[in-house]
Amino acid sequence: MEDKEFDRLLKITRLRVSDGERSMIKKDVEQVIAYFDEVSAVDAGKEQERYPAAIPGRFREDVISSFADVDGLKRNSKMRNGYIVGPKL
């Protein structure tokens, strides 16, 4: 994999790797992709199974329900004036 492509992947995944990690992870990624190339040799037909079981797509009733522990939900975030604080746009 070219450095340019590796950098593109880091950018779109919002990941940063240290200089020490970079060569190791890049080498691992290349080896795994080479391993994945094995699938090209398999004649598997055209049918593609996305799930191992049929998903009926059954939805629950569209009714308003209350969430029991709103305070518990808020405790997992940094709050200000009742809003979750997020990064600057």
């Binding site: 699938v39 398999v42 598997a44 037909g45 049918e47 593609q48 996305r50």
Partner: peptide, 8 residues
């Protein structure tokens, strides 16, 4: 391709 192999 992986999905097709899964199916097979």
């Amino acid at each position: 391709k992986a999905l097709a192999i899964r199916s097979m």
